[in-house]
């Protein structure tokens, strides 16, 4: 069962995309990172990942994109069952109130990071979100103890063992 769990970054400004990817470097050995510059490309990448029987654990999405904007993309993705379980985080300086509320209500948004972000904040969010994801979608949680939230994972392992009887 070698399905990998991907982190998808959707951002059109190359320097920002670069910076995000760089901040995610430490996760890459466990969670490979893919990037897209717009909504259409994001869908292509998602298709590619799903077609190869991999999963998408986390989507870090900017709001201001050429063509369809980030919030609308996230809302659309709710219609794809494989992606519905992925954790969704908006990373943006420019989603207004209404857009954000829409994302929360209709796109099941899990978190919102305002630009500019600090590496520490980003890492914390990624760890939290991916920990939740693996707990809910993976049977074997041990491999992730080193990189994700160790305590939460231990608790989950214990709970799983108890309910397995």
């Amino acid at each position: 069962m070698d399905d990998k769990i991907y982190i998808l970054v959707v951002e059109d400004e190359l320097e920002v995309m670069d910076a995000l990817i760089k901040d995610l470097e430490e996760f890459e050995s466990y969670f490979p990172v893919e990037a897209a510059n717009n909504a259409d490309e994001a869908r292509e990448v998602i298709d590619y990942i799903i077609d190869h029987d991999h999963k998408i654990g986390l989507i870090l999405c900017d709001h201001v994109l050429p063509g369809q904007n980030g919030v609308d993309l996230l809302i659309d993705l709710q219609n794809r069952p494989e992606v519905a379980k992925s954790k969704k985080v908006l990373v943006t300086g420019q989603a207004g109130h209404e857009d954000t509320i829409l994302a929360i209500n209709k796109a099941d948004l899990d978190h919102y990071i305002a630009k500019p972000w600090t590496k520490e904040d980003l890492e914390k969010v990624v760890v939290d979100q991916l920990t939740d994801y693996v707990i809910n979608n993976k049977k074997n949680l041990l491999p992730y103890m080193a990189i994700l939230d160790t305590e939460k994972l231990s608790d989950a392992i214990r709970t799983n063992q108890m309910t397995d009887h």
């Binding site: 190359l14 995309m17 990817i21 897209a36 510059n37 490309e41």
Partner: peptide
């Protein structure tokens, strides 16, 4: 000159072939 995500992805596939001894994905990128 920064490459956009499409170019990057394509080039990453090429690099994987040309540099099989590089395993770390971020290095490939």
């Amino acid at each position: 000159v920064p490459r956009d995500s499409t170019q990057l992805r394509k080039q990453m596939l090429t690099i994987e072939k040309q540099f099989p001894w590089v395993h770390d994905r971020s290095s490939v990128r």
